Amino acid sequence: MTIQWLDLDTVPALPGLFLQALLRRGATGKELPNLGLRTHTSINPQNLAAYRKVCGAADSSLLPPAYPHVLAFPLQLKLLTDKRFPFPLLGLVHLENSIQVLRPLAGLGPFSISVHVENLKPHDKGAIFSIITCLEDQLGLLWRGDSRVLCRGVKLDGSPEAPLELPDVPLTTRGQWHAPSDIGRRYARVAGDYNPIHLSALSAKLFGFPRAIAHGLWNKGRVLADLAEQLPDSGYQIDVRFKKPLLLPGDVTLESSADAATGQFTLASSHDMLHLHGNWQPLNH
């Protein structure tokens, strides 16, 4: 698929896009647009500091490895609310997330950031596709993200692919923390993602949840903060599968394998409810 790139002068403003997302109902097709969005951006040091605080990440000369998702969120929202995108934004489910850190994430920019969608496939609960995000500097590609997202109820031809299962490895407790009832609102103020399911019990109940749930990318960012000493500065990939939602408030335990070039980790509640399962590996693995 040849991507038709639309270059934007500025990062899109969020309020109008949220309104479009709320008003959109029902799928309008079964093909992804070949549209991609690009713009230039720089990092706001106050926003970066707030992200580190809400995710428990230590100060560093390098950006937290999941932080580029925050930079990309306005572009992602604009693409997913475009009339050419066939699925309603509300109700999409983030199933998997993969990030590749090709070179050290140093500096505050300027950067070029781009998003597009691809790889639409059948899933046993609907259709799944990728939101691809790329962060570049003057030397080229720095970071690449692949968010695999489910749209329920869409029927595509073909059979769903069986998920690749990771081998069992010994895991030990790496960290434990409390996710407070307001962590969804706090993360939303940093990341811009004001999905109602994360904000309060009242708004989450409108979408079938008993209480607000934590953002999947907050879970991942918080996990990576605790795994920072196990990861190199660059040349690695982190894959995560999101499992059961983390209801707020909640207490969770991070377990990981021993320090090595490759490894696995899980995040689970005290009653053994699994919230995510992931692994890290070198890019040339």
Rank of each mutant, 00 (worst) to 15 (best):
E118D: 14
N119C: 03
N119V: 01
P122K: 02
P122T: 10
P122M: 10
H123V: 03
H123G: 06
G126V: 06
A127I: 02
I128K: 03
I128Y: 01
I128A: 12
S130A: 11
I131N: 01
I132L: 12
T133N: 03
C134V: 07
D137M: 05
L139G: 10
G140E: 11
G140A: 06
G140M: 09
G140K: 14
L141Y: 03
W143G: 04
D146T: 07
V149A: 04
V149T: 15
C151T: 03
R152N: 13
G153T: 08
V154G: 14
K155P: 02
G158K: 10
E161I: 12
P163C: 00
L164T: 11
P167T: 08
P167H: 11
V169I: 05
L171H: 07
L171K: 09
T172I: 14
T173M: 13
R174Y: 11
R174G: 12
Q176W: 13
W177C: 12
H178Y: 13
H178M: 06
S181C: 01
I183V: 12
R185T: 10
R185A: 06
R186P: 00
R186V: 05
Y187L: 06
A188I: 03
G192E: 14
Y194D: 02
P196W: 15
P196C: 02
L199N: 02
L199M: 14
S200M: 11
A201C: 08
S203R: 15
K205N: 06
K205D: 00
L206T: 06
P210R: 15
P210D: 14
R211A: 10
A212G: 09
A212R: 01
A212S: 04
I213P: 09
H215C: 13
W218L: 11
L224I: 05
D226M: 13
Q230N: 14
D233S: 13
D233Q: 15
D233F: 06
G235Q: 06
Y236G: 02
Y236L: 09
I238W: 00
